[in-house]
Simulated assay, not measured.
Amino acid sequence: MNSPPSKSPSADETRPAPAETNGAQDPLAHLPAPLRRLAAWFERGDQGLAHVERWLIALCVLGMATASIANVIGRNVFNYSLPFTEELMQILQLWLTFLGISYGARAGRHIRVTALLDFMPPWLRKVLLIAGQVITCALLAYLAWLAVDYLQSLAKSGRVTPSLRWSLAALYAVVPLGLALGALQYLMAILRNLLAQGAWLSWRTAEMDENEEVDGSGAL
């Protein structure tokens, strides 16, 4: 008798399991379940914050482009320059800069000097990475505290912008906020390095991920 033809596996059967179901791919898989759940809630909150920051940064860039184009059109077409555009662009640049502190720290995109670290063993690299993150976190937190003190003095003075007459205290509130959020991101990076294996530039970005992107072997 002829044996029945073998059935080829379907696409669903040959598809590899998702990475989320593989505990080996989770850098926090060795932690107790309560800590993993806490980390999951922590990460969801950070994702929501990242979404808000992304939209605010996009609105700042769009506002700067709109104000610049409107001023060029007014000056060259109508022979009239909008008096508030330069002031508005300075305000938006201020917001863009300090919102970018937290966003850049979350993505591990702040400038680092790694000439000496490249020659050190992995364990020492991680120790020095954590030390740098601790110093940066403390410095940003201290600057945020100084910015709050300066913001209080602005609020008492009641100063406003020359053209738009907007409160400087309200506009400069982004300074301590951005510094504090940056300190929070470095604190999260410290916790990630202490809880997970490997070296981490932020809660989401491993150091090897950055190296893969630099040498072209990893996708953005």
Rank of each mutant, 00 (worst) to 15 (best):
R125C: 10
A58F: 13
M188N: 07
G178E: 05
L62W: 05
A39F: 08
G108Q: 01
W41Q: 09
M208N: 11
R192T: 15
D26F: 01
A107K: 15
L124G: 05
W203K: 06
E210K: 12
V134Q: 08
T136R: 10
P121L: 02
L140I: 10
T136G: 13
V148A: 07
W95Q: 02
G45L: 05
L179C: 10
L56M: 14
K126V: 09
P4F: 04
A138H: 02
D209G: 10
R75Q: 09
M89I: 15
L49G: 13
V148Y: 09
W95P: 00
N22S: 08
G48M: 01
L146S: 12
L220M: 10
R106F: 02
T136H: 09
A50T: 11
L146N: 12
R159E: 15
K7F: 03
T136N: 14
D26L: 03
V72L: 11
A29N: 08
M89L: 14
G132C: 01
G132V: 02
E20R: 05
L194P: 04
L99R: 02
Q25D: 12
T161S: 09
P122R: 10
R15D: 00
T205P: 07
T114S: 11
V160P: 14
L28D: 09
S217I: 10
D26I: 02
L194F: 05
G218Q: 07
Q47M: 08
L82G: 00
Y172K: 01
D12Y: 09
D149L: 13
I69A: 08
A50F: 06
A141H: 06
I135N: 09
A39D: 10
L129S: 15
G100N: 03
A183Y: 03
K7I: 13
T97Y: 03
R44P: 00
S202F: 00
G218M: 05
L191T: 13
A65F: 11
W41S: 11
L96V: 00
N79Y: 08
L56A: 14
R125S: 06
S8N: 09
L181P: 03
E13K: 04
F84L: 04
P4C: 01
L35I: 11
W55R: 12
A169L: 11
R159I: 14
L151Y: 03
H110E: 04
S157L: 14
A144G: 14
A50E: 12
I91L: 06
Q185S: 04
L38M: 09
T136W: 07
A33D: 14
L191D: 04
L195P: 07
A115H: 11
M89N: 15
I130V: 15
V77L: 04
I69W: 00
N2T: 14
R204M: 07
L117N: 05
F98A: 02
E86R: 03
R109G: 11
L146D: 13
E212Y: 15
P27K: 08
G23K: 10
I101T: 05
L139H: 06
L129D: 15
W145K: 13
A141D: 07
L96S: 00
L62I: 04
P83W: 00
Y186A: 08
P4W: 02
